[in-house]
Design a binder for these strands. Sequence first.
DNA 1: GCCAACGTTGGC
DNA 2: GCCAACGTTGGC
Length: 156
Amino acid sequence: MSTRRRYWMMKSEPDAFSIDDLARVGTEPWNGVRNYQARNFMRDGMRVGDGVMLYHSNCTVPGIAGLATVASPAYPDETQFDPESHYHDPKATREQPRWFLVDVAFERKLRRLIPLSEIREHSDALGEGFALTARGSRLSVFPVTAAQWKLLLSLE
DNA sequence: GCCAACGTTGGC
DNA sequence: GCCAACGTTGGC
């Protein structure tokens, strides 16, 4: 298996949790992901030190807001066990957790937000499979290739 | 607020 | 295993 650093995009609604929130707390357990594909990327694909782009979704100007790093191996999302939590999953047990997460550590804010509208201008270079601009895709956690990472950062 | 696209659930 | 109904996402 390759030991090279991998790259990821993670979406968040800034009203709920923004890059400024991450800057304030430093490290955050990325809880609340309830999509199997996104879970699998966190559980099976991520490793400590991987690069993360934080994307602000469902807001006035959606786009990439900052950089972070994967700060822990995957472990069960505690909120699935909490009946009081919005993310409670009655089918999950401690013996058989259903949802996993990683800790995400703040790295830096981008000098400016890279708007989705601008990212779309590079759809050809980013490729059809790129989940951010793929038609109909709503994945909130997905891989970014080294080439995509470089291209996106060059827009900063 | 609208609505298209998608994922999940549950009856059959 | 099908698929309609439902809930959610997220751009606009």
